[in-house]
Structure formats: C-alpha cells, structure tokens
Computed example of a mutant assay.
Amino acid sequence: MRFGGIVATNDVTLEVRRGARHALIGPNGAGKTTLVNLLTGVLEPTAGRIVLEGEDITRLAPHQRVRRGMVRTFQINQLFNSMTPRETLALVVSQQRGLGGRWWQGLGANAQVGERCDQLLGQFRLAEVADQRVELLAYGKRRLLEIAIALACEPRLLLLDEPVAGVPAGEREELLQTVAALPADVSVLLIEHDMDLVFSFANRMTVLVNGTVLTEGDPDQIANDPQVKAVYLGHGEEAAHG
C-alpha cells in the first residue's frame, strides 16, 4: 500500500489458517492498522490480492466482506451510546438473519433472535448489564459488547484490533478469559500490543516492522528470535544495541 511516496505495507504475505489463533505484532508505525484496513476493505491496495476461502475479495466493499464472514473490531469503540447491549445485539442478529428493520417491533417478537441475544449476552458476560444504556457501561464491558457484536455477524474470520487497549487493569481479566474462549471454528487474527495477551492466546505470530514481515512462527520461536528481541520485545543484549 502506497500513500504518495510512502510505502505503508510492502509485499506483505500473510496466511491465516482455518481455526487459527494468529497474532500480528510490531512496533507503532509498523503498518498493522493499514494491513487490517486493506484486509477489511477500508483501503484499496496499490498492488496484491486478498483471498478469503479461495475467493478473491480484493475489490469487495467492507459490508460485502462481512457477509462473506470477515468481521473486525476497532481500536476505538464503534457503539450506539443510547442503546442497550440487548437492543444492539438484537439489531445485529436481526440484520444477520435477513429481518432488516423489523428488530424494533419487540425483542420478544422473534424467539430465535431473542435466544441468540441471550446466548451472546451470557457468553460475553453482559447479562447483568443487558438493559443498561451503553454510555453507562464500564469500558471493559463496552469492549466485550464490541466482540459480541462481531460474533453476532457469524464470522469465519474475526479480526480483533487491540481488544484490551484502554481497558483498566481491573477489567482486563474478564476480557482476556472471554477472548480465550472464542469458538474454535472461528479463525482469529489478533492485532495487539499487550504481550501477555498475545503469548497466552496465539499459536501463530507474524511480526511486522516498517511495513514488511520480519518473521513468522509459533510463540516460542518468536520469543527467542534475536531480531524480534532487538526491534520489538526490548529484551536482551540485542535490544541494548538496537
């Protein structure tokens, strides 16, 4: 991806396998957000292809990618403050099931929608705040609602963009446990600075530096890679000279 004379991502090849727990890490300015925006259709690449389950989706609009199963969360909350978690999820689930604008006719009007909302509220530890306005929720609960919304879209590939960013320490554990318990059949690409979350969650990791893939491997390989220690993790002798 080029912006004038700036190359934000350069020949990045990334394969996320079915059911993966794949983390994308790298220092600020590495190109992580640009890459996610390319994958999800916010940006159109200068060159290259994006393939989802064998289908070239490079030119599809973001909403068309969602329909095909690629769903993301954002670094900054994208929520309706005046709605409750139950109302928000009812809207998403109804839309997903082709009911369009009829969600407002009463949450009990469609038993399947109500049942799915209850499942999500329980799974994401939102049941006790289900009927509170979003603007009144603790920040950790807002993050949980965002991931619940993404899962309500029935993704095959879920992109989690810094899910614990800004979450106070006291609310993080609930979020970490919920992320760890995401359905095994949903492939997850996690973009995150929190190394505790990355290493506890991922079974595959890609390190991006200056818009280019530095290396890729399992968590042990990444933790012990001298280049990664030098440019990102800040450990050891290499970092002191980096």
Rank of each mutant, 00 (worst) to 15 (best):
residue 6 I to T: 10
residue 6 I to P: 08
residue 7 V to C: 13
residue 7 V to E: 09
residue 8 A to T: 03
residue 8 A to P: 04
residue 9 T to V: 15
residue 10 N to S: 15
residue 10 N to P: 07
residue 12 V to W: 07
residue 14 L to D: 07
residue 15 E to V: 14
residue 16 V to A: 05
residue 16 V to I: 14
residue 17 R to P: 00
residue 18 R to Y: 15
residue 20 A to T: 11
residue 20 A to Y: 09
residue 22 H to V: 01
residue 24 L to R: 01
residue 24 L to W: 01
residue 24 L to S: 08
residue 28 N to F: 10
residue 28 N to Q: 09
residue 29 G to T: 13
residue 30 A to R: 04
residue 32 K to Y: 08
residue 32 K to D: 02
residue 34 T to M: 08
residue 35 L to M: 06
residue 35 L to I: 09
residue 35 L to N: 00
residue 37 N to V: 12
residue 39 L to Q: 01
residue 40 T to I: 06
residue 41 G to T: 06
residue 42 V to A: 12
residue 42 V to E: 08
residue 42 V to H: 05
residue 44 E to V: 15
residue 46 T to L: 02
residue 47 A to T: 10
residue 48 G to R: 03
residue 49 R to K: 15
residue 49 R to A: 12
residue 52 L to A: 04
residue 52 L to F: 12
residue 52 L to G: 03
residue 55 E to M: 06
residue 57 I to V: 14
residue 58 T to L: 05
residue 59 R to H: 12
residue 63 H to E: 13
residue 63 H to G: 05
residue 64 Q to E: 14
residue 66 V to N: 02
residue 67 R to G: 12
residue 74 F to M: 11
residue 74 F to A: 09
residue 75 Q to D: 13
residue 76 I to S: 13
residue 77 N to F: 11
residue 78 Q to Y: 10
residue 79 L to Y: 04
residue 80 F to G: 04
residue 80 F to K: 02
residue 80 F to A: 09
residue 81 N to C: 11
residue 83 M to S: 03
residue 85 P to C: 03
residue 86 R to G: 00
residue 86 R to W: 02
residue 87 E to M: 02
residue 88 T to A: 08
residue 90 A to G: 06
residue 91 L to F: 08
residue 91 L to V: 06
residue 91 L to N: 04
residue 92 V to S: 07
residue 94 S to Q: 01
residue 95 Q to F: 13
residue 96 Q to V: 14
residue 99 L to R: 11
residue 99 L to Q: 08
residue 100 G to Q: 05
residue 101 G to R: 14
residue 101 G to Q: 12
residue 105 Q to T: 15
residue 107 L to S: 00
residue 107 L to G: 01
residue 108 G to A: 15
residue 111 A to L: 12
residue 112 Q to E: 15
residue 113 V to C: 04
residue 114 G to W: 00
residue 115 E to K: 06
residue 115 E to V: 04
residue 116 R to H: 14
residue 117 C to P: 01
residue 118 D to A: 13
residue 118 D to Q: 12
residue 118 D to I: 01
residue 118 D to S: 14
residue 118 D to L: 11
residue 120 L to M: 01
residue 120 L to H: 03
residue 120 L to G: 01
residue 120 L to N: 01
residue 120 L to T: 00
residue 123 Q to K: 08
residue 124 F to T: 00
